[in-house]
Write a protein that binds this DNA or RNA. Structure first.
Length: 799
RNA sequence: GGUCCCGUGGUCUAGUGGUUAUGACAUCUCGUUUACACCGAGAAGAUCGCAGGUUCGAUCCCUGUCGGGACCACCA
């Protein structure tokens, strides 16, 4: 009897330790094998690994393992991304502190210590537990000195090539976190507000009514806009409007962007209520009026509202306007406000000094770069292209935070000149370190840049980061990398940014192939999120079913497509593993100390079966080469279950037990080689159990220390066939096909007669089939337990 | 609003210009046969979202439409 429960936890731990100790996945810098390099995504340290990670990292690992077995020297590093805002938030939450209260130095120290001692090791363990075959010694964290150095060097290079500039510019700002924020960090939120209609006096004598949700920005009003085709307002164009309370006058301008239907059809233009306002000052070359401080309070230009925050000021100003009698009406509305996703604070737009990478001029080239990549699946390229076509701003790379890679710049206190560090100094902290030389003006007093770089500025350099961990002579071989695996949500960020930086620095794409994975949705097809309470922890799956079972499920969906998580898929994985163990046990129960040797002549059935195996190997291999791991798995699994277990093992039992020496030799050889091929084809998916079986039964005859560094099976057990199609199968395996068809019919008859499968019977088969099956009749007799097989007119099963 | 993806038995899903349209789970029947009952054999169950078109032939290609999802933009 088989053990009811396989102790997969013990098995998995055993082999994980073995792989580590024997350095099975170590990248060998001296090897002459071709290199296959993977630009592993560095997961953001933000708690624990979630199921989306577990699936997508499993998926890239399938590829790594396949390529390793195909004879490549695998360069598969691992890093963690811990320099971003996510980390700041995590530490603030875990340690119950606020970065800005603690102060810069103390906070950085706390973050680094907490990461090193508590968070990172626990976090990385999750990745090791799902069986990733990285070389864990090629490791980086995006905040370490090495990454800082490369990030800063990139900054300096781009500055020197004229690609970077600093500019005071309207920028999305979170008054709560006191930092500029990127588009990605914003979220839409439905909020209740009031749409306030305010009458403004004009130089035309008549009043004009504007509608706004932000009346408190009135001191920053720079113009009133109306649509030139709006009959109501045509006559106002070019006139002046006077703002109540503040009594300054602004021009009434024509602007086609204005929606005639919306509100009153007249917009008052403040600096800044939203991104439209920004666009309009650029378009119309209007000088903004800055009324807000970085903490969200109004400054002296807001008059009596100075010191108040938006909400309070809004309340007050509405009251004051009411008193003046200039409010026409107030409509309560619900509208969407951009809030900072981390703290839910509505975004303000302020004038701030920011650093940019100039790249809007490169749109055409960007499209060319994207086109040179091999996209798997192909259609994902469209997302990249659309993103580029819609780009409106240069890449803002500065962030006002305490924790991150410092921008390596000093400003001369005397002349304001920008001074950069020398490469040998890197990484620098401009707040602590000093330039090596005096400023051109002779001064040696500098002010260090306080801002840090956007986390994408670092993660867009992963190909450089990882190859520079290696000896210098490999640098050229590791660029471009072979594969960038990642999920589709960050095509427009990580992938795009890396392509841009790679081309700016090296005039070459940073990788050749791009494999895009989908999301994991819940069983109903909805995105998992903590607020919905539908989150599934991969750690629990691993603990209940094992990593192999989880990986098996991860190999299920179509490439690039979101898959909905079904626990039953993991259960299927576990059943597969059990089946594999049982089948292997049976094979070696009979093979015992068999030494593999190809017999001079194979039995016809064995030959047919091996042809089918050849075809399966062909399919699995070509699918894997196209990154279609799910199809590769499907074919290998199907072959194992349907062909190997349900068909071949049953069919060959007779010969295995009672065959002649020659019959046995053929059967043994076929069992031995086909099971090994199956194990190898499944090894990328279920690395633990295939290793266990390999070590238990095959190791003594096979030279490789681990199945994972053994050679991928070749499709030449019978005859090398370049391309398999229906014709090939028919011409090569007609006996087998006929055999299977007949067997199915006989089994159906037995079931219909309510007989067990080993019930004795007398078979009559069609004369033509009988002739075709001459060489496999004995096997058919065995598997059906037929006393006799007769040739006749009609197919018949008698008991 | 733009772009992309998806819509296949009760559920999840594979796939294809001509197939008896794949598999898993669930359902039903039978079977304990020297690997496995976490098993085997078999049955039932799908007008391949809907409507047009192209074609000798469409589930597959095209157009429209409805439904689901994702990304982006907008929301004064």
């Amino acid at each position: 009897m088989a053990k009811k429960n396989i102790d997969f936890k013990k098995i998995e731990e055993k082999w994980r330790k073995f792989w580590e100790k024997e350095e099975i996945y170590k990248f060998n810098p001296k090897s002459k094998k071709p290199i296959y390099s993977i630009d592993t995504p560095p997961p953001t340290v933000s708690g624990r690994m979630h199921i989306g990670h577990a699936f997508s990292y499993s998926q890239e690992d399938f590829i790594a393992r396949f390529r390793r077995m195909k004879g490549f020297n695998i360069f598969y590093p691992f890093g963690t991304d811990d320099n971003g805002l996510a980390t700041i938030r995590l530490i603030e939450r875990e340690k119950k502190v606020k970065a800005f209260d603690l102060g810069r130095e103390k906070f950085i120290k706390l973050v680094l210590e907490t990461l090193k001692k508590e968070l990172r090791p626990e976090y990385i363990a999750d990745w090791k537990n799902i069986g990733m075959s990285c070389d864990w010694n090629i490791f980086y964290t995006t905040i370490d000195k090495h990454c800082q150095k490369i990030t800063q060097r990139s900054f300096i290079d781009l500055y020197k090539s004229g690609r970077e500039y600093r500019k005071k510019t309207p920028f999305m700002w979170c008054p709560e976190c006191q930092t500029s924020i990127a588009q990605v960090e914003m979220r839409d939120k439905n909020m209740k507000s009031n749409f306030v209609y305010i009458k403004l006096d004009t130089s035309l004598g008549k009043s004009i009514t504007i509608a706004t949700t932000r009346p408190e920005l009135m001191p920053a009003c720079v113009a009133v806009h109306v649509n030139p085709s709006d009959k109501r307002y045509k006559k106002f164009i070019g006139q002046k409007a006077k703002l109540p309370l503040f009594n300054h006058e602004v021009e009434i301008c024509a602007n086609e962007d204005v929606d005639i239907e919306f509100g009153s059809g007249a917009v008052y233009h403040c600096t800044f209520g939203d991104m439209d306002d920004v666009e309009w000052i650029n378009k119309m070359k209007i000088e903004p009026i800055e009324v807000m401080n970085k903490d969200g309070t109004f400054n002296e230009k807001a008059g009596k509202y100075k010191g108040m925050k938006s909400e309070k000021a809004r309340e007050e100003i509405i009251n004051d306007l009411k008193k003046l009698g200039v409010i026409e009406k107030i409509e309560p509305i619900e509208h969407v406000v951009n809030v900072h996703e981390r703290c839910d604070t509505p975004i303000e737009i302020l004038m701030t000094e920011q650093w940019f990478i100039k790249y809007l001029d490169l749109k055409k080239q960007m499209l060319v770069w994207g086109n040179k990549l091999e996209w798997y699946p192909e259609y994902m390229k469209v997302r990249y292209n659309n993103w580029i076509k819609g780009l409106k701003y240069d890449w803002s790379i500065s962030r006002q935070r305490y924790f991150g890679v410092p921008i390596p710049v000093w400003y001369c206190k005397k002349c304001g000149e920008i001074v950069l560090p020398e490469e040998s100094q890197l990484p620098v902290d401009p707040l602590k370190d000093k330039p090596k030389k005096k400023c051109k003006c002779g001064s040696d007093e500098f002010e260090g840049e306080k801002d840090v770089l956007d986390t994408w500025a670092t993660s867009s350099l992963t190909p450089d980061i990882v190859r520079e961990l290696m000896p210098k002579n490999l640098k050229a071989k590791l660029y471009p990398m072979s594969l960038r695996p990642q999920a589709h949500d960050i095509i427009t960020f990580w992938l795009f940014n890396t392509v841009v930086k790679g081309n700016l620095h090296h005039n070459k794409n940073p990788f050749k192939d791009v494999m895009i994975s989908g999301f994991v949705l819940d069983s109903k097809g909805k995105k998992m999120s903590k607020s919905k309470g539908n989150v599934i922890a991969p750690q629990e799956i691993v603990s209940e079913y094992g990593a192999d079972a989880l990986r098996f499920a991860a190999a299920g969906g179509k490439l690039g497509e979101d898959i909905s998580y079904q626990e039953k898929d993991v259960v299927t994985g576990k059943k597969f593993i059990t089946k594999l163990i049982n089948a292997s046990k049976f094979v070696f129960m009979n093979l015992k100390d068999y030494k593999p040797k190809k017999p001079k002549k194979l039995e016809k059935l064995d030959e047919g079966f091996l042809i089918e195996l050849d075809r399966t190997i062909y399919l699995a291999t070509s699918y894997f080469e196209d990154y279609e791991y799910s199809r590769a798995k499907f074919n290998a699994e199907n072959f194992f279950w349907k062909f190997f277990c349900d068909f071949y093992l049953e069919a060959v039992k007779g010969r295995v037990y009672n065959g002649t020496k020659r019959e046995k030799e053929s059967a043994f050889y076929t069992l031995y080689t086909s099971l090994l091929a199956i194990l190898k084809m499944m090894a990328p998916f279920t690395p633990f159990i295939t290793e266990e079986i390999y070590q238990n039964y095959y190791k003594k005859n096979e030279k490789d220390k681990s199945i994972h560094i053994s050679a991928w099976p070749k499709q030449d057990f019978v005859k090398k066939i370049e391309k398999w199609d229906d014709k090939n199968i028919k011409s090569h395996a007609n006996e087998l096909t006929l055999f299977v068809t007949l067997l199915t019919q006989i089994r159906a008859e037995k079931t219909k007669a309510k007989k067990p499968m080993n019930a004795e019977c007398i078979l009559t088969i069609n004369k033509i089939n009988y002739e075709d099956l001459k060489e496999v009749l004995e096997d058919l007799k065995n598997v059906t337990n037929a006393k006799e097989i007769k040739s006749g007119k009609q197919f018949k099963v008698e008991f």
